[in-house]
Amino acid sequence: MREAALTLALVGVGAGLVMVERERWRTGLFGVGTVLLVMALARLVLPARRVGALAVRGRLFDVVALLAFGGGVIGLTLTVPIPGP
């Protein structure tokens, strides 16, 4: 059960990338960004022995990095204009 958080994160990112491949890129990348934000929350609240490989550096560094990446992916996804008819 130690790698459950990482496994769930990889499944979520994989599902998002499948959506991107199927030309639902906005929804897929929004999902990837959301998974990164959930990983940040998991890293913040779960003890290091429960998050397994999500614990790369110190807790603060991991949380800030995941928040920055997740927010960046979501922000960039939302700023790309939707093509008009």
Results as ranks from 00 to 15, higher is better:
Phe61Asp: 07
Val18Leu: 13
Val32Pro: 05
Gly12Asp: 04
Thr79Asn: 09
Ala55Tyr: 01
Gly71Glu: 03
Leu54Phe: 06
Ile82His: 11
Leu29Tyr: 10
Asp62Ala: 04
Leu17Met: 13
Trp25Ser: 11
Val18Asp: 02
Pro85Met: 08
Pro81Tyr: 05
Val20Glu: 00
Leu54Gln: 08
Ala68Leu: 14
Gly72Ser: 10
Leu67Arg: 01
Asp62Asn: 02
Leu17Val: 12
Leu66Lys: 01
Leu37Met: 15
Arg24Gln: 13
Val35Leu: 07
Ala4Met: 13
Pro83Cys: 10
Phe61Gln: 07
Ala53Ser: 14
Leu36Thr: 03
Ala53Leu: 12
Val63His: 02
Met39Gln: 13
Val64Pro: 03
Pro47Lys: 08
Val35Asp: 04
Ala4Asp: 02
Arg22Thr: 12
Gly16Leu: 09
Ala55Val: 04
Ala48Ile: 05
Val38Asp: 11
Thr34Arg: 02
Leu44Gln: 14
Ala5Asp: 03
Gly72Gln: 05
Leu66Val: 00
Leu6Lys: 04
Leu37Asn: 10
Leu44Trp: 15
Val56Ser: 08
Pro47Asp: 11
Ile74Thr: 02
Phe30Ala: 15
Leu60Lys: 06
Leu67Lys: 00
Leu54Tyr: 00
Val11Ile: 15
Ala53Lys: 01
Leu17Lys: 03
Met39Ala: 15
Val63Tyr: 02
Ala53Glu: 06
Val11Thr: 09
Ala9Gly: 06
Leu76Phe: 15
Met39Val: 15
Val80Leu: 14
Leu60Asn: 05
Val11Ala: 15
Leu10Phe: 15
Leu29Pro: 01
Gly70Thr: 11
Met19Glu: 04
Ala9Lys: 05
Ile82Ala: 11
Glu21Met: 12
Arg59Ala: 11
Asp62Ser: 04
Ala42Phe: 13
Val20Leu: 12
Leu66Trp: 04
Leu60Gln: 04
Val18Met: 14
Arg49Val: 00
Gly75Asp: 02
Ala65Gly: 02
Arg2Gly: 15
Val45Lys: 00
Ile82Asp: 11
Gly84Lys: 14
Gly12Leu: 13
Gly28Pro: 01
Ala15Ser: 12
Leu76Gly: 15
Ile74Asp: 01
Gly75Leu: 14
Thr7Pro: 02
Arg57Asp: 04
Gly58Ser: 08
Gly52Lys: 01
Leu17Gln: 03
Ala40Asp: 12
Arg59Ile: 03
Val20Met: 09
Ala40His: 06
Leu66Tyr: 04
Glu21Asp: 12
Leu41Met: 15
Met19Ile: 00
Leu67Ser: 08
Leu36Trp: 14
Phe61Ala: 08
Val45His: 05
Pro81Met: 04
Ala42His: 03
Pro83Met: 08
Met19Gly: 07
Val63Asp: 07
Pro85Val: 10
